[in-house]
């Protein structure tokens, strides 16, 4: 097998083994209900993680997405409470703002040659602050359109449901895979992750690509915010703290190299599912502290970083003896 598929294969194998272990202990976990809930519960995280995958593939990082998700939720809640505009219009407005916000961060990163870590950290504080400016309370969203959207689902055999937001996440992943592997933008993202100076010499438009990457991440964070507001039917400025770190964890567990240039969007989906599975297992168990999720995720992250290190070592050795 091509070594570039090792991390992805490892992720999928871990998921299958973990799921088998779960079923061995709780046979009920093998049901379409569990799968449906897995998708629904992790929809917002999954959508944001697709954006994070692109950012990390390019060798960057986006710390702002948790704050942007919260901002989007508060923005929608305030807008729908104070005005009578249709939620679809509000969605469009929110997406426009978050996309522009991402593009702005990308432009600063490129033109001022600032590290993405710092720029998006500032973006994180800014977005979180803006959410607080809009409202410090948790505002419920009672618009009937929300109920309509939440009522849409596809019934799986066995009683499970793929809800609107669960389905949306799958669509976003499909689109993400297509963009990553079948467009020039996608190829440029990988090229950037392989080394920006070389990519420039090879004619990759560095500036445009960087801005587009962060705009895409902003757009998906906005979409994730919409999904989160559908999921919770509320907007709260203290919500989704640390979601960016969960997203980074999902991307890395999904087999993407933190230094950029190597990985797959599909792997991130499996990374999300592994995280969700651990959470579901803890719910089924009932006696375990939910902090076990963090502990297991932490261990998995370590394992994957070691795996990546080992792979790099292996390919280096292979090349030397080629």
């Amino acid at each position: 097998m091509n070594p570039r598929y090792f991390p992805l294969a490892a992720t999928i194998a871990i998921f299958i083994v973990a799921y088998a272990v779960c079923i061995g202990q709780y046979p009920n976990m093998l049901s379409t209900r569990v799968i449906g809930n897995l998708l629904t519960d992790n929809a917002f995280l999954g959508i944001a993680a697709v954006g994070m995958t692109f950012v990390i593939l390019s060798g960057g990082i986006d710390l702002s997405i948790g704050a942007v998700i919260a901002f989007t939720g508060v923005f929608l809640a305030v807008l729908l409470e104070k005005t009578s505009i249709h939620p679809l219009v509000a969605f469009a407005l929110a997406l426009a703002i978050t996309t522009a916000f991402g593009a702005l961060m990308g432009a600063i990163i490129h033109h001022l040659e600032m590290p993405p870590f710092i720029v998006t950290l500032a973006g994180m504080f800014l977005a979180r602050g803006m959410a607080f400016v809009l409202s410090i309370d948790s505002i419920p969203i009672k618009h009937p359109f929300y109920a309509t959207l939440k009522g849409i689902y596809y019934k799986l055999p066995g009683g499970g449901r793929i809800t609107f937001i669960g389905g949306l996440m799958l669509v976003v992943f499909a689109a993400g895979i297509l963009i990553a592997h079948r467009t020039r933008f996608g190829a440029n993202v990988y090229a950037l992750g392989g080394g920006a100076p070389t990519a420039r010499l090879m004619g990759v438009p560095i500036g445009r690509t960087t801005i587009l990457i962060y705009a895409l991440s902003g757009f998906l964070a906005g979409l994730s915010g919409i999904v989160f507001s559908l999921y919770t039917s509320a907007g709260y400025s203290l919500a989704t703290v640390g979601v960016e770190l969960d997203a980074i964890a999902a991307v890395v567990i999904g087999g993407t190299l933190l230094t950029g240039g190597s990985g797959f969007v599909a792997g991130t989906l499996v990374g999300i599912l592994i995280q969700g599975l651990i959470q579901t297992y803890i719910t089924f168990d009932g006696s375990l502290s939910s902090w076990w999720t963090k502990i297991l995720i932490g261990l998995l992250l370590f394992a994957f970083i070691l795996l990546q290190k080992g792979l790099i070592h292996l390919t280096d050795r292979r090349r030397r003896h080629a």
């Binding site: 020039r184 990988y190 090879m202």
Partner: peptide, 18 residues
């Protein structure tokens, strides 16, 4: 070599003009 080691050989040859 000023090529990108993380891309495939074909991608390196045709980057930007796929």
């Amino acid at each position: 070599v000023n090529l990108l080691p993380n891309l495939t050989v074909a991608e390196n040859l045709f980057l930007g003009r796929q």
